[in-house]
């Protein structure tokens, strides 16, 4: 009760389940910043809270579904997009947002991601990329950079990482952007833009992981990591997603893809209408 009283002072309180605050995320984690930007975007768009659904998978950022004060779904590992697809097709009036991590969306849920993007299902995917599996103790994942030290790569990682924005753009997403946790305003604007757009949109948020990944790789405190992001990030809108690999010296950020394509839901409704009309004609004969 005391905590609820305290939370009432913050302007975003009505979007949060304040009895669950403070959240479990570590100090300096980018997940809190992502959630803050998302809620600010909702606040500025004045979205009807009954018309929005947040779906999340497993991982640190998976807890986001439990913290937002809208209808939400904390799904099984890797299946966030599969659940979100079902929600969107069952009730097309709802705005469906998937907030999940890199391990959830691209390791176990990789196939769901590429096929949802190919079908252009009208869901918004926001991915917090911290380069490892933070919740389980820092194992390497599909986005871990080469030579990075994790608990399961004690001599350095020898696997090439995914370039998530390139993957999303190649799979057919209509809106693709990447920001770091430091670019809060631009991230918020990107989320707003994607919420107003029809089709599959993907936003990658490079997030610091000061307790696990950054500590193992000797990157210093969360503030040091954010300063490093500031130093090496390079904003280039409309840049070729194939050339946006994250290296030690550069993180290319910006809006890379912004195109129009009919969404799966629209095509499905049009097709249903067409078939029903044909059936009616047949019956009339």
């Amino acid at each position: 009760m005391k905590q609820t009283e305290r939370m009432t002072q913050h302007p975003l309180t009505k979007y949060l389940r304040s009895e669950r605050m403070p959240h479990i995320w570590c100090e300096g984690c980018g997940n809190g910043i992502l959630l803050n930007s998302f809620l600010t975007a909702l606040d500025e768009l004045k979205v009807d809270l009954d018309k929005i659904v947040v779906v999340s998978g497993i991982g640190c950022i998976g807890r986001a579904a439990g913290y937002v004060n809208v209808d939400s779904f904390h799904t099984t590992h890797g299946r966030a997009i599969a659940f979100a697809t079902g929600v969107k097709l069952a009730n097309p009036d709802l705005q469906v947002v998937v907030i999940s991590g890199d391990g959830d969306l691209f390791a176990i849920g990789g196939n769901h991601f590429i096929h949802a993007a190919r079908r252009n299902i009208d869901i918004k995917v926001i991915c917090a990329n911290n380069f490892n599996y933070g919740m389980t103790g820092g194992q390497y994942g599909p986005t871990t950079p080469l030579e990075a030290w994790t608990t399961t790569t004690p001599y350095g990682n020898i696997e090439h990482p995914f370039n998530l924005v390139h993957l999303a753009a190649a799979s057919g997403a209509v809106y693709v952007a990447r920001w770091t946790a430091l670019h809060v305003r631009r991230l918020k604007d990107s989320i707003k833009k994607s919420l107003q757009k029809e089709g599959f949109s993907f936003i990658e948020v490079i997030s610091p992981c000061p307790t696990i990944f950054d500590r193992y790789n000797k990157r210093g405190t969360a503030v040091d990591v954010m300063k490093w992001f500031k130093l090496i990030s390079n904003v280039k809108h409309g840049h070729d997603p194939a050339k946006t690999e994250i290296t030690k010296s550069q993180i290319m950020v910006g809006e890379f893809v912004d195109v129009e394509r009919p969404s799966y839901g629209r095509l499905l409704r049009d097709m249903t209408k067409k078939v029903q009309e044909k059936l009616k004609e047949k019956k009339a004969k």
Partner: peptide, 15 residues
């Protein structure tokens, strides 16, 4: 409002 926007813990707000 940058402090409020970047706060991961919803602990600071500016009006």
């Amino acid at each position: 409002g940058f402090c409020a926007a970047i706060c991961p813990d919803f602990a600071i707000s500016v009006t």
